[in-house]
Amino acid sequence: MSGAPALEVDLEVTVGRGGAAFSVEARFTLPSGVLVLFGPSGAGKTVTLRAIAGLIRPTRGSVRLAGEALFDWMRGVDVPPEARRIGYVPQDQALFPHLDVLGNVVFGLPRKERKKPGPLVLALLDELGLSALRGARVDSLSGGERQRVALGRALAAEPRLLLLDEPLSALDRAARLSIGRSLREALARRSLPAVLVTHDAEEAAAFGDVFVRFERGKPARELPREVVLGEKGPCPHCGKP
């Protein structure tokens, strides 16, 4: 591994037009591990995530992945999303409703591997507990299963970074624990850096190595764990308040 940090972000993104327009400013660095974007909804966390993926064009700034510039306003660099190799799991999972579970997971693979899933795909299905569901329609899945499929679909394409938007917030407690464990193991096994969006302090504490606090109308900055999560924040070791 090179000495460059996994992810360096220094962005200003403007969304909307006219009176409805608002700007998000964010600057942070992730050496390795999981970076948590923490704050209330409407503060620009998802916008920042989409800008890292290349789905929104920032008004200025830069995004660097392991030292490589994916976006650099000064130098006119803007790598399209399909060439960034950044996995994206949006809040509603956005599973492809016209495909079954396997079809979703192999979606980003070359045609040959889509036709006949190889050992890597089978191992991934196994890892995420999806083997028995491979032929299932995605609209028949539970919330936790949907999250696993979305995670598998992103991981199968072998991303260099994973973006997760509120991955656990819609789940019940049991699913939250089991998906949370799968997610942590999946990231650790691949040494895959990730950016996780959440408004939940417990979730933030359980996953985060680096914390960025978002507040409406304020630039988002890296802050120490205690400051971001607040004094009432949960214990970093046990996850309990």
């Binding site: 789905l55 960034r84 996995g87 994206y88 956005a94 492809f96």
Partner: peptide, 15 residues
């Protein structure tokens, strides 16, 4: 068609 689906497809490497 939710544009979110098209966005995810782009991040999965599709032109």
């Amino acid at each position: 068609v939710p544009s979110q689906l098209e966005d995810v497809a782009r991040t999965l490497g599709l032109k």
